[in-house]
Design a protein around this nucleic acid. Structure first.
Length: 496
RNA sequence: GUGAGAAUACCCAAGUGGUCUAAGGGAGUUGCCUGCAAAGCAAUCAGUCGGGAGUUCGAAUCUCUUUUCUCACUCCA
């Protein structure tokens, strides 16, 4: 097993990853709130944890990857007073809330597939776990860590901290400071303390999404679902919890409080946070209006885009930086990634078709073999160092040079030796396809290819080069197409 | 204001005490290859890591200071 290090937000240090159960890893990632299309910034986060999932699997762990769908409880506006995001969209579009949920869940899945992110092992929904959320709320009330107020239930942060909780430890905040800052804010109303957060909210009469509970009709608070679903499927204490940097406070802080409050143990061993995708130095976000939808990127139809970029180009672009750095979007950077990605994939095509060719005349060059081994180790060193995909890719480019040299006969497989060659082939393919999740994007524009061929066909026909004409026909036929040579003109059709 | 980070070549981006005479990609320049290209290969491309001071035998990396920027504290991945 590789010595894999993770930067743990809790300790602010890279720590050697040691799962609770030697061979098994439980990881939870905060999924999207499905009230809108996911944007490219969201994609970065999910891609980061896709790489984690892929790498852990690659180095031999059995991973249970849980990523939720938030389909209720996430409020618009300031904390606990706003409207439910999904309910709001439902009213706006005059649809059932669940129609909104389904529409954007589908969109999310489509995008994940386009970017070649693997589906999680379990994808639970908040509405599917109302019972669990009510139970946890009751448990917290019983323990004196939550209180009912006018049909809503709030988590009591002061009581939690009196009992040994350390609210603020993840984000590095000091409770007293938070209290002072928020003391003079208004709208406290039902809460004992402005920092207290909702576990259960009473539903206003016009509220669409509502369930019966011991405290009347209502709906669960946003933070609670992740606590219930992560611990339900991964246990009270599990290995890895991931999410975007912007969820660190308060969302993840609240998750720790709820988890520790209800079970007595810290729920998560390794907290991982991926950094933001920025545009011109500013965070990409829906509210700032500087976010692109993946579809706009792929089509190239956004004012900030000079051209279209394929999903794999974007994936490669994201992987060329480390997930904890902010990554700034620019056309120049994307174009550079496009070339790099294509070079790497060209190498993939070459090595896949290449086999070891023994040659008794030629001796093995131990230096070459050693270089290959060292560079492959470099790929692993990069991944092991808190998923430093940038380093892994740098090493892959060095392997690519060897592959191209082999291809151009500037180096022979016999010089590398069978062992080193097979290692090169196996690891280059595995790193790109299995670990980084990059794949070939075949240009499948059959129509334009066919029309170009038709032009050639016409030329050959006019020059009466009938052998060439037949060749073109055979080529079309081999691809399931036929040439229609009519009085009115030339066209192609699908072979019937 | 409070908390968390960032500043590395023309652009993107690794590197967080010696292996750094600073990865890798893109752009540029030169050569090889080619009928010409493209692709590929080879060579070249940062005397230096935002500025200043310090610690150390040794600093891009640690400390202090300063400037600029981002994020969080309000819905966000």
């Amino acid at each position: 097993m590789q010595a894999f290090k993770i930067y743990n937000t809790l300790s602010r240090e890279k720590e050697l990853f040691q799962p609770i159960n030697a061979k098994h890893v439980g990881m939870y990632v905060c999924g999207p709130t499905v009230y809108n299309n996911v944007h490219l910034g969201n994609v970065r986060t999910f891609t980061t944890f896709d790489i984690l999932y892929r790498y852990l699997t690659h180095i031999g762990y059995k991973v249970r990857y849980v990523r939720n769908i938030t389909d209720v409880g996430h409020l618009v506006g300031d904390g606990d007073e706003g409207e439910d995001k999904i309910g709001k969209m439902a009213k706006l579009e005059q649809l059932e809330p669940m129609e909104i949920v389904q529409r954007y869940t589908n969109d999310f899945h489509d995008v994940m597939q386009q970017f070649n992110n693997l589906p999680p092992s379990i994808e639970p929904t908040a509405t599917g776990h109302i019972v669990e959320q009510i139970e946890t709320t009751q448990k917290l009330i019983d323990k004196g860590l939550a209180y009912e107020s006018n049909g809503s239930v709030y988590f009591d942060i002061e009581a939690y901290n009196r009992g040994g909780g350390e609210y603020g430890k993840l984000s590095g905040r000091i409770l007293e400071d938070l209290l002072t800052e928020t003391r003079d804010l208004d709208g406290v109303g039902e809460k004992r303390n402005p920092l207290d957060f909702a576990l259960w909210k009473k539903a206003a009469p016009e509220h669409l999404m509502r369930w019966n509970s011991p405290w009347g009709q209502g709906f669960p608070g946003w933070h609670l679902e992740c606590t219930c679903m992560s611990t339900k499927y991964l246990g009270d204490n599990f290995d890895i919890h991931g999410g975007g940097m912007d969820l660190k406070f308060p969302h993840h802080e609240c998750e720790i409080a709820q988890g520790k409050g209800s079970t007595g143990v810290d729920p998560v061993r390794y907290w991982m946070h991926s950094n933001m995708l920025t545009v011109n130095g500013q965070k990409m976000s829906k509210s700032l209006g500087n976010s692109f939808l993946p579809a706009e990127l792929i089509a190239g139809n956004h004012p900030l885009l000079e051209q279209a970029y394929s999903p794999m180009t974007a994936r490669f672009f994201m992987l060329q930086s480390q997930y904890r750095s902010t990554l700034d979007f620019s056309n120049d950077a994307l174009k550079a990634s496009q070339k790099g990605y294509k070079r790497m994939i060209n190498g993939l095509r070459i090595i896949k078709k290449m086999d070891y060719l023994p040659n008794p005349e030629q001796e093995i060059d131990p230096k070459q073999a050693e270089e290959i081994e060292k560079t492959i180790q470099g790929c692993y060193d990069g991944m092991n160092d808190d998923l430093n995909t940038a380093v892994t890719i740098a090493n892959l480019f060095n392997l690519l040079k060897k592959i191209n040299q082999l291809y151009m006969n500037q180096l022979s497989t016999a010089q590398l030796g069978e062992e080193a060659f097979n290692l090169l082939k196996k690891e280059y393919i595995a790193m790109i396809e299995n670990v980084l999740g990059l794949k070939e994007e075949l240009a499948t524009d059959v129509a334009s290819m066919a029309s170009g061929m038709l032009a050639l066909y016409k030329e050959y026909k006019e020059a009466k080069q009938y052998d060439k004409v037949d060749q073109v026909r055979t080529y079309f036929k081999a691809n399931g197409l036929v040439i229609k040579d009519m009085k009115t003109g030339i066209d192609w059709a699908y072979e019937e």
